Amino acid sequence: MTESNPSISERKKGLRQKMLAMRRALSANETESRSSSLKENILSLPEYKNAKKIMAFLAMKGESNLDGFIRQALLDGKEVYIPVCLPERQMEAGRLIDMEHFEKGPLGLRNLPAGYEVTSPESLDLVLIPGLAVSQEGIRLGMGAGYYDRYLARVPFEKRVAALWDFQVIPDIPSEPFDQKIAKIVTDKSVIVTKRG
């Protein structure tokens, strides 16, 4: 392999490092302001208004923060689920009852307490998906572990919505056959129907 022709995995690795650095550069104030705009844009989606069961995610530092959105969804009477990582890079949707009761997981992550209710990927009406970047064709760049790609294989295409910051929508992302496409992108500045949608 020559340096002028890097593999797809090498190109993804370089892009991950670049996007992580951009995300980490956000100040707490900017993250809070962007989160408020992102929340309003998600709440305006017809997919949200018609949904009974929603899968969201609990943000890591710098990631698009959905905490305010999740609180509103719970107030609106929606069933909210979040990803729970399982062995062998599998994932399930565990029901979130409120935003107060968590167990501390590795790296300070918030985990659901034991005994949570699980629903199937097929039964979800809207799946909000994190990522480091997404292209307008709906190709998503995740952290590289493949949890979401395995899970999304069982989620109907039209229910997959990426939720991230506007600067994370980029023109081109190298893709591999197992990469699951996204139908819609919602950011703090816009809502984009992907070109594959």
Results as ranks from 00 to 15, higher is better:
residue 4 S to K: 09
residue 4 S to A: 13
residue 7 S to M: 01
residue 8 I to M: 14
residue 8 I to L: 12
residue 9 S to T: 15
residue 12 K to H: 06
residue 12 K to N: 06
residue 13 K to M: 10
residue 14 G to I: 03
residue 14 G to W: 02
residue 15 L to D: 12
residue 15 L to K: 06
residue 16 R to L: 15
residue 18 K to P: 04
residue 19 M to D: 12
residue 21 A to I: 01
residue 23 R to A: 03
residue 27 S to C: 09
residue 31 T to Y: 00
residue 32 E to W: 03
residue 33 S to K: 12
residue 35 S to I: 01
residue 35 S to F: 01
residue 36 S to Q: 13
residue 36 S to C: 09
residue 37 S to D: 15
residue 39 K to I: 09
residue 40 E to Y: 02
residue 42 I to K: 00
residue 45 L to C: 11
residue 46 P to L: 14
residue 46 P to W: 09
residue 49 K to D: 10
residue 51 A to R: 00
residue 53 K to N: 12
residue 53 K to S: 13
residue 55 M to Y: 05
residue 55 M to I: 07
residue 57 F to P: 07
residue 58 L to P: 05
residue 59 A to I: 02
residue 60 M to T: 08
residue 60 M to V: 06
residue 60 M to D: 04
residue 62 G to M: 06
residue 64 S to E: 05
residue 65 N to P: 05
residue 66 L to K: 04
residue 70 I to H: 05
residue 72 Q to C: 15
residue 77 G to R: 00
residue 77 G to T: 02
residue 79 E to S: 14
residue 81 Y to N: 07
residue 83 P to N: 10
residue 83 P to Y: 08
residue 84 V to Q: 04
residue 86 L to F: 01
residue 86 L to M: 13
residue 87 P to E: 14
residue 87 P to R: 07
residue 89 R to Y: 09
residue 92 E to P: 00
residue 95 R to T: 02
residue 96 L to K: 03
residue 96 L to A: 08
residue 96 L to N: 05
residue 97 I to A: 13
residue 102 F to D: 13
residue 102 F to N: 11
residue 103 E to H: 03
residue 107 L to D: 01
residue 107 L to I: 01
residue 111 N to F: 10
residue 112 L to T: 03
residue 113 P to F: 07
residue 114 A to D: 14
residue 114 A to Q: 15
residue 116 Y to F: 15
residue 117 E to D: 15
residue 118 V to S: 00
residue 119 T to S: 11
residue 119 T to P: 01
residue 120 S to W: 01
residue 120 S to Q: 11
residue 123 S to V: 07
residue 123 S to Y: 02
residue 124 L to C: 08
residue 124 L to N: 05
residue 127 V to R: 00
residue 128 L to K: 02
residue 132 L to G: 08
residue 132 L to K: 06
residue 133 A to F: 04
residue 134 V to Y: 02
residue 135 S to Y: 04
residue 135 S to F: 06
residue 136 Q to K: 12
residue 137 E to K: 14
residue 137 E to V: 01
residue 138 G to C: 10
residue 139 I to C: 15
residue 140 R to K: 08
residue 145 A to C: 10
residue 145 A to E: 13
residue 147 Y to N: 04
residue 148 Y to W: 03
residue 150 R to Q: 14
residue 152 L to A: 07
residue 153 A to S: 11
residue 153 A to F: 02
residue 158 E to K: 09
residue 158 E to P: 02
residue 160 R to H: 08
residue 161 V to R: 01
residue 163 A to W: 02
residue 165 W to C: 09
residue 169 V to W: 11
residue 170 I to L: 11
residue 174 P to H: 03
residue 177 P to N: 11
residue 182 I to H: 05
residue 182 I to G: 07
residue 184 K to L: 14
residue 187 T to E: 09
residue 189 K to M: 08
residue 190 S to M: 14
residue 191 V to G: 05
residue 191 V to N: 03
residue 192 I to C: 10
residue 192 I to K: 06
residue 193 V to M: 04
residue 194 T to P: 02
residue 195 K to F: 11
residue 195 K to S: 15
residue 196 R to M: 15
